[in-house]
């Protein structure tokens, strides 16, 4: 089977800093990474390929530095990677992004070979909308489900998946081609292997770039122009008024006593605390 797996190149969240003057994000010098929630999707795609044969193609619509991320996925074992990049794609909201991705999937289907499955991560760490898989399914009119933790094929060539919702475990069967999005942290991704890296070094053509002169998408349908939503303005989040009383206790007992005293002399807090202390039996554990 031929599987396309989506990847987004996102700012590394560990190093995000806020400009204290403007309250905006400092992006300069912040190293980017593969969206961590895409890695379980890559892993599942690789497992399906390893089991049933075929190939995995990573697809990312990102600026050129995302090549690093695609190389990482090739290192994990992805067979080839496509970077969809063009200045006209910049500023896209999720509708315009999914439009470009859906068309790239169509192009892969037409020019490389039939695509059976597209796999995405649950959401990204930088915008966490979870829109892209459903929107891509809408453009392609493919069946789709979210929050998948495991997938396999039935004897008659259908895709079976298991997913977990807030209060239910479900099994679904999908005709292919289909789209699935993989629950975050559900599958442990494999590390990059040296062998795959060497393979890539000797055959760099497994990573290709498609610009819009190749994709030939109407410029009114992509990037900022192809985005129905935009950020009209940003405002500071108003500061929450707090008492800001800070206590330096003598020892742990003093600290505990001070906390309870403070809470019990605070009108709102004492009501909730006393209710809890009276309500619960307290018999356990003591």
């Amino acid at each position: 089977m031929r599987i396309v797996v989506g990847m987004k190149w996102v700012p590394g969240t560990q190093s995000v800093r806020i400009d204290p003057k403007t309250g905006t994000l400092i992006r300069e010098g912040v190293p980017s990474i593969v969206n961590p929630h895409d890695l379980p999707a890559v892993e599942l795609a690789l497992r399906l390929r390893d089991k049933y044969g075929g190939e995995v193609i990573a697809l990312s619509m990102s600026p050129p530095p995302a090549i690093k991320g695609l190389e990482y996925l090739i290192g994990m074992g992805v067979d080839r990677a496509i970077l969809l990049t063009d200045r006209v794609y910049a500023g896209a909201d999720t509708l315009a992004t999914s439009y470009a991705l859906a068309n790239a999937i169509r192009k892969i289907d037409a020019e490389i070979g039939k695509v059976d499955l597209a796999v995405f991560g649950q959401e990204t760490t930088d915008s966490s909308t979870a829109h892209i898989p459903a929107q891509t399914a809408s453009w392609l009119n493919w069946p789709y489900v979210y929050y998948v933790r495991d997938a396999w094929l039935t004897e008659d060539g259908k895709l079976r998946v298991e997913r977990i919702l807030e209060n239910a475990i479900e099994e679904w069967e999908l005709d292919m081609p289909a789209i699935i999005s993989i629950a975050m942290k559900s599958i442990k991704p494999r590390p990059v292997s040296l062998l795959n890296k060497i393979r890539f070094k000797t055959n760099p053509s497994t990573l290709i770039t498609w610009t819009n002169s190749y994709m030939n998408l109407d410029v009114r349908c992509v990037g900022l122009k192809g985005s129905p939503t935009f950020v009209a303005k940003t405002v500071d989040v108003p500061e929450v008024p707090r008492k800001k009383i800070v206590y330096k206790p003598k020892d742990g007992e003093d600290a505990a006593r001070w906390i309870l005293k403070s809470l019990l002399s605070d009108e709102k807090a004492s009501r909730a605390l006393l209710k809890a202390l009276r309500g619960s039996s307290g018999g356990e554990g003591s």
């Binding site: 800001k244 009383i245 007992e253 600290a255 505990a256 006593r257 403070s262």
Partner: peptide
């Protein structure tokens, strides 16, 4: 500490067991 109503500067390992006891 400047965004809380009541802040305590202490090691939690000292504070929490005492809180439970109290």
């Amino acid at each position: 500490l400047s965004q809380a109503d009541y802040g305590v500067v202490a090691d939690y390992r000292e504070v929490i067991p005492n809180l439970i006891k109290l």
